[in-house]
Computed example of a mutant assay.
Amino acid sequence: MQHLYFDLGSTAGGACFEVELRGSTARVCLMDAEDYQAYLDNDEYEFYGGFYDVSPVVLEVPYDDHWYLVIDSYPRRIKVSIAQVFD
């Protein structure tokens, strides 16, 4: 399974991350640690996000937990930058 991932660590609910995609469309998924493991195991999982062909994408962490940001795309064709957004 080809994907890029970013370990966001323990993140408080309400934190926002901006994802800039260049080179390809992608499915951008924000997952807690349990759902990310299910994703890796090809089990059922839930995520926040969706399929995006326009960027930047801003995703808000829904609750306190350990979070991963997964970019489903062709890793050799896409460039991704991520920044935490502060008000």
Rank of each mutant, 00 (worst) to 15 (best):
T11V: 14
F6N: 08
V57G: 07
Y48L: 14
P75G: 04
V28I: 13
Y52T: 01
S24Y: 02
P62D: 06
I78V: 13
S10E: 14
Q2I: 06
R76G: 00
H3T: 07
V80R: 05
V28W: 07
Y36V: 01
E34W: 09
S24H: 09
G50W: 09
R22L: 07
E60G: 10
P75Q: 07
E20G: 00
R77C: 02
R76C: 03
D35S: 15
A83Y: 06
E34Y: 10
V19R: 02
V54Y: 07
F6I: 12
R22T: 10
N42Y: 12
Q84C: 12
D72H: 07
F17A: 10
V80C: 08
I78M: 03
I78S: 01
F86C: 11
H66Q: 04
Y74V: 07
F86M: 11
V28D: 08
L69T: 02
Y63I: 00
C29P: 00
A26Y: 03
L69N: 05
Y52H: 14
Y39Q: 02
E60A: 14
G23S: 06
V80Q: 02
Q84T: 13
D7G: 02
E34V: 13
M1D: 11
F6H: 13
L40N: 06
A15T: 14
S73D: 02
D72R: 12
R22W: 01
D64E: 14
V28Q: 05
F51W: 13
A12N: 11
D32G: 11
I78H: 02
S81R: 12
F17P: 06
Q2M: 12
Y68L: 14
C29A: 12
Y45G: 09
R22Y: 00
Y39M: 11
V54P: 00
A12V: 00
S81F: 04
D43L: 15
G23V: 09
G50E: 07
L30K: 10
G49N: 12
A38T: 01
S73F: 00
Y48R: 13
C29V: 04
Y5M: 04
E46D: 15
Q37V: 12
D32Y: 09
N42F: 12
L69M: 10
V80G: 05
L40I: 08
I82A: 08
L8E: 01
D43W: 10
Y52V: 01
A15I: 00
Y74F: 11
D7V: 03
R76H: 11
D7K: 10
E44Q: 14
Y45S: 01
Q37F: 05
D53Y: 05
V19K: 03
E20R: 08
V70I: 14
G49T: 07
P75T: 03
N42W: 04
R22V: 10
L8K: 02
P62M: 08
